[in-house]
Structures are given as structure tokens and as C-alpha cells.
Measured scan of single mutants.
Amino acid sequence: DLSGKLIIKAQLGEDIRRIPIHNEDITYDELVLMMQRVFRGKLLSNDEVTIKYKDEDGDLITIFDSSDLSFAIQCSRILKLTLFVNG
């Protein structure tokens, strides 16, 4: 049953990962930690990372904090994230 699940599709460069999320109350910090685990070796804990999501118009919107993240989650059951490393 995928109805209650949130799917995160995260892209870093050419690498795209699909991550099912069971807890929608994820904070921004938890998201960043999850991305560091998912992209281990490509995304380091001291990297400056910018996370953006695609909205319904196809625009890339920056996620700065947990309220941005929860808004993005409300918009779509499949959250398409693009990561930019400013390392």
C-alpha cells in the first residue's frame, strides 16, 4: 500500500535515488542526514548542500528549512529533489 507513503526521488549529478519515506514529519536536518547516507561518498557532512524540489510548474524551489520541506511534501506524494553541492 503506497498511499500512505511518501516517495523521495533525489538527484545528485547524474545519480538518482528513490527512497520511500514512512514518516512524513521529517525535519530538514533529518532530510540532510538521509541524503548524506543515500549519497555516501558523494555528499560529505561538511559539504554545503542546497536542496531544491520541483513544484507543479516544474520550477526548482529551494528548501531552506523544515517548514519549506513540509510544504513541499503537502504538494506531492512524490517529492523530486535535486541536490547541489557548493563544496
Results as ranks from 00 to 15, higher is better:
Leu2Cys: 11
Gly4Arg: 07
Gln74Cys: 05
Asp15Cys: 15
Arg77Tyr: 05
Leu31Met: 09
Leu83Trp: 00
Tyr28Arg: 04
Asp65Phe: 02
Glu24Trp: 04
Arg37Glu: 15
Arg37Ser: 10
Ala72Glu: 00
Ala10Ser: 00
Ile16Tyr: 12
Leu6Cys: 07
Lys5Ala: 08
Asn46Arg: 10
Ile51Ala: 02
Ala10Lys: 00
Lys42Tyr: 05
Phe84Met: 06
Ile26Ser: 00
Asp25Ser: 10
Thr62His: 05
Gly87Ile: 14
Ser67Ile: 08
Thr27Pro: 02
Ile61Tyr: 06
Leu33Cys: 08
Lys54Ser: 12
Ser76Gln: 08
Gln11Phe: 02
Ile21Tyr: 11
Leu6Val: 11
Gln74Asn: 10
Leu44Pro: 11
Asp65Ala: 03
Glu56Arg: 14
Ile21Leu: 09
Ile7Val: 07
Ile51Tyr: 03
Thr62Leu: 01
Gly41His: 08
Ser3Met: 09
Gln36Gly: 07
Phe84Arg: 05
Asp47Val: 02
Gly87Tyr: 06
Lys9Cys: 15
Lys5Met: 08
Ile78Tyr: 10
Asp59Val: 14
Ile73Trp: 08
Leu69Tyr: 01
Lys9Ala: 15
Gly13Phe: 05
Lys80Gln: 15
Ser45Pro: 09
Leu12Arg: 00
Ile26Ala: 02
Thr82Tyr: 12
Leu43Asp: 03
Lys52Pro: 01
Ile26Asp: 00
Asn46Cys: 06
Ile8Thr: 01
Gly13Ser: 03
Tyr53Cys: 03
Asp55Asn: 15
Leu81Lys: 02
Asp68Leu: 02
Met34Tyr: 06
Glu24Asp: 08
Asn23Trp: 03
Gln11Arg: 11
Asn23Met: 05
Asp59Pro: 05
Ile8Asn: 00
Leu81Glu: 03
Val32Met: 11
Ile61Asp: 02
Gly4Trp: 06
Arg37Lys: 09
Ser67Trp: 09
Leu31Asn: 01
Ile8Glu: 00
Met34Gly: 07
Asp55Val: 07
Ser76Asn: 12
Glu24Cys: 12
Glu56Asn: 13
Gln74Val: 03
Ile73Gly: 00
Asp15Glu: 15
Ile61Gln: 14
Ile63His: 01
Gln36Arg: 10
Leu2Val: 02
Leu79Glu: 10
Cys75Ile: 12
Arg77Phe: 05
Tyr28Asp: 01
Val38Glu: 14
Glu14Asn: 06
Leu44Asp: 14
Leu2Gln: 09
Lys42Trp: 04
Val32Ile: 10
Glu56Phe: 05
Leu79Ser: 10
Asn86Arg: 11
Gln74Met: 05
Arg37Tyr: 04
Leu33Gly: 08
Leu6Ser: 08
Ile78Arg: 07
Ser45Lys: 14
Gln36Lys: 12
Leu2Asn: 14
Ile7Gln: 04
Phe84Ala: 11
Lys54Leu: 09
Asp65Lys: 07
Leu43Tyr: 04
Tyr53Phe: 11
Lys9Ile: 15
Ile51Met: 11
Lys42Cys: 07
Asp15Pro: 00
Leu69Trp: 03
Gly4Tyr: 12
Arg18Asn: 15
Gly87Ser: 12
Leu43Thr: 02
Ser67Asp: 07
Thr27Tyr: 01
Gly4Ala: 12
Tyr28Glu: 00
Pro20Gly: 09
Ser70Gln: 09
Ile63Ser: 01
Ser67Glu: 08
Pro20Trp: 06
Glu30Cys: 05
Leu69Ala: 02
Gly4Ser: 12
Gly13His: 05
Asp57Thr: 15
Asp29Thr: 10
Ile7Trp: 09
Thr27Trp: 00
Gly41Lys: 05
Gly13Thr: 00
Gly58Phe: 02
Ser67His: 13
Phe64Pro: 03
His22Gln: 11
Asp65Cys: 08
Lys5Thr: 11
Pro20Ser: 12
Ile21Arg: 02
Asn46Asp: 08
Ser3Tyr: 09
Ile7His: 06
Arg37His: 12
Asp1His: 03
His22Val: 13
Asp57Gly: 15
Ser3Asn: 11
Phe39Arg: 01
Ile78Gln: 13
Ile51Gly: 02
Lys9Gln: 15
Ser3Ala: 07
Leu31Val: 03
Thr50Arg: 06
Ile7Pro: 01
Arg18Leu: 14
Glu14Leu: 10
Asn46Ser: 09
Tyr28His: 03
Asp59Phe: 14
Ile78Lys: 07
Ala72Gly: 02
Lys80Asn: 15
Gln36Ser: 08
Asp57Trp: 04
Val85Ile: 12
Leu33Arg: 10
Asp25Cys: 11
Glu56Gln: 14
Phe64Thr: 07
Phe84Tyr: 06
Ala10Val: 07
Ile51Phe: 11
Val32Pro: 01
Pro20Asp: 15
Leu44Asn: 11
